[in-house]
Design a protein around this nucleic acid. Structure first.
Length: 584
RNA sequence: GCGGCCGUAGUCUAGCUUGGUUAGGACGCUGGCCUCCCAAGCCGGUGACCCGGGUUCAAAUCUCGGCGGCCGCACCA
């Protein structure tokens, strides 16, 4: 769809820059792609979108919000798996310039296993490629030197320190890292939703399309924790009859391109969506986009196939919005992260991240206990003895013994542990409850994309002028106040009114330059829903006119009724026509 | 990161081929006049050769490098 031979993308970016919503940063130094500055209108709009996000998600679920730092000690992202999966050795074919993952080439052409390639340094990768004389699978060309692509920003923490820090690529990790305290603060209830809205950094290879792919961006991560054995969503009733536009993975691999309208209850029955909470959040996400002005038919949820998913995700749907030029564009990801992150942090930090849930009735259960026998382990494993002891202490006793029975030994972390190394005992114990690692579903939104989408969705051309028809809730500026002409006391009266409305907490814009038509046009372009005009009659009977941005119709209203009516209007309690009596 | 195309005020654009212009226009923005309702009119003002090197007496113009943009490839956890 083109309007006046200009795509909406171009038109929106132009208006964004000209009116001060956002623009590329550091322009005076030639710019740096992947960074963007929000101007006055943009930061107001972004703030309102974040407020809408809070209304849509935090309130109904009583979720709790946190705020943590961007610079994060390396350990955190080593534990979370990001260091490993954000860094890949790549090689480029010198002939056809295609790029490949070097580790995948070694796996596929030289039969080197993933766990082996992981351990290789760049030099070794290079050597192995040569040794197996691996060629470009596309054109049989030679490869250049392998290089790492590390898309996390790296820094050093402290002045002379060797301690590495990363710019967080998602806001989620600090929620997992701080989970124990947060759980305690939330008084140990499940399900529990924890939220963070904040900046994240990704050193994208090729950031493009302005606000759509940035190197520094605002992400809104919801980590919703629940008991996997009690995975029912108690609010499902509110959404189960609603439909979602879905492209499930199974159908996607069969070539399905158009989303199916699937009832939530059906999507769960058919197994399209793995868990109820995920489905529930997908409905909230759809409604949230509705409230930013995006209709259902411009939304869809498309499942990510196994190899497309993040390393932590057991199931993932992307919520996409259909844009004019950019096509289907991801605005949020809905991942079932299971207990992956908490378990990883448990493993690396050695801190117990399990939660305890009391049974209704205590249960007595037979349990197996295993203990390392140091006197036999010592001589057998020598310097590795300590590691072996840790392995045994940390193992799941019943599973350990099952394997022992089956094979006569247990192979753990490359240690062959024999029956003589462990002491086994059985006891009947009374269990008051169970300990488990909660599971997590994660809806995660890119706020900057939402800002862009709100703009593009609101954008309309009418009689050769641009109008941003924001839903009234997210309009950066709510009302404009104009004197019809600058002659006489109209200006004074209008400024008085502007001050009054501003004191009432409304975002107000005053303008008296140019003609009234020009001012209306400027207001439309800033997406201001209502324009209030002071005219000759105002001085006589204390009434003003209010003009609707979307229809350009006007009503006349007495000034004392203005504030309560405006409040009702912005709370969607009344329509524009209810504001006053139709004039003209 | 690679390849193709491209870069003149906030926007659109003339000029570049053939080096020498006070770099021209329109819209916007802005000040004033006028104006009782949708970018009206009149007068004034503001504002640009992406950055850096080279060639040359002289560079918007030729050349090299960088930065940025668009498209394609790759990447997108």
């Amino acid at each position: 769809m083109k309007k006046n031979n200009v795509t909406m993308y171009e038109a929106v970016n132009e208006i964004a820059r000209r009116r001060g919503f956002f623009w590329p940063s550091y322009e005076i130094y030639g710019g740096a792609s992947g960074f963007m500055t929000y101007g006055p209108l943009g930061s107001l709009l972004k703030r309102k979108i974040e407020a809408t996000f809070r209304d849509a998600f935090l309130k109904p679920l009583k979720m709790l919000e946190i705020e943590s730092g961007i610079i994060t000690p390396a350990k955190v992202f080593e534990a979370s798996g990001h260091v490993k999966s954000f860094k890949e050795p790549m090689v480029e074919c010198t002939k056809c310039r295609r790029k490949f993952r070097a580790d995948h080439l070694l796996r596929d052409q030289a039969n080197i296993s993933d766990s082996e390639t992981e351990k290789l340094t760049l030099k070794q990768v290079s050597k192995e490629l040569k040794r197996h004389s691996i060629q470009c699978p596309e054109c049989k060309g030679e490869f250049g030197h392998p290089q790492y692509f590390m898309t996390m920003f790296v820094t050093r923490i402290g002045p002379y320190s060797d301690s590495v820090g990363y710019g967080r690529p998602e806001a989620a990790q600090s929620i997992f890292v701080e989970f124990r305290r947060l759980f305690e603060v939330a008084r140990e209830r499940l399900p529990l939703g924890l939220v963070q809205i904040g900046h994240a950094l990704r050193n994208e290879i090729s950031p493009r399309q302005g606000p759509i792919r940035l190197r520094e961006f605002t992400i809104a991560d919801i980590e919703f924790f629940f008991d996997p054995q009690d995975a029912k969503c108690n609010l499902l009733k509110q959404v189960e009859d609603e439909t979602l536009p879905l492209i499930p993975g199974t159908l996607k691999s069969q070539g399905l391109k158009e989303a199916l309208e699937v009832k939530v209850s059906e999507a769960l029955q058919e197994g399209y969506i793995a868990t109820e909470w995920l489905a529930y959040f997908m409905v909230l996400a759809k409604r949230f986009l509705n409230s930013l002005g995006v209709p259902d038919e411009k939304q869809r949820f498309i499942e990510k196939l196994r190899w497309e998913r993040a390393h932590y995700s057991a199931q993932g749907y992307d919520q996409e919005v259909l844009l004019d030029r950019l096509g289907w564009t991801e605005v949020s990801g809905h991942n079932y992260r299971t207990d992956f992150d908490l378990k990883q942090h448990m493993k690396w930090s050695k801190v117990d991240m399990q939660v305890f849930k009391e049974y209704d009735q205590p249960k007595s259960v037979d349990r197996v206990f295993i203990k390392p026998i140091r006197s036999t382990i010592g001589p057998a494993f020598k310097e590795d003895a300590k590691k072996v002891i840790d392995v045994i202490t940390g193992a799941d006793a019943s599973r350990f013994m099952q394997e022992m029975k089956k094979k006569g030994y247990v192979l753990a972390e490359n240690f062959r542990i024999l029956p003589e190394h462990v002491q086994v005992s059985r006891k009947t114990v009374e269990e008051k409850g169970r300990k488990f690692v909660p599971h997590v579903v994660e809806p995660s939104f890119g706020i900057d994309r939402l800002v862009y989408i709100a703009l593009e969705t609101a954008y309309e051309k009418k009689k050769d002028r641009a109008i941003l028809k924001f839903p009234r809730e997210i309009a950066p500026i709510q009302v404009a106040v104009f004197p019809l002409v600058t002659k006489g006391d109209l200006g004074k009266k209008a400024q008085e009114l502007q001050r009054k409305l501003s004191e009432e907490g409304l975002e107000v814009f005053y303008d008296e330059s140019g003609s009234i038509g020009r001012r209306y046009a400027r207001a439309d372009e800033a997406g201001i829903p209502l324009c209030i005009t002071v005219d000759k009659l105002t001085l006589a009977d204390n009434t003003i006119t209010v003009r609707d941005r979307n229809t350009w119709t006007q009503v006349r209203i007495k000034i004392p009724e203005l504030v309560p009516n405006l409040n009702a209007y912005f709370d969607r309690k009344i329509t524009f026509e209810d504001l006053g009596s139709i004039s003209n």
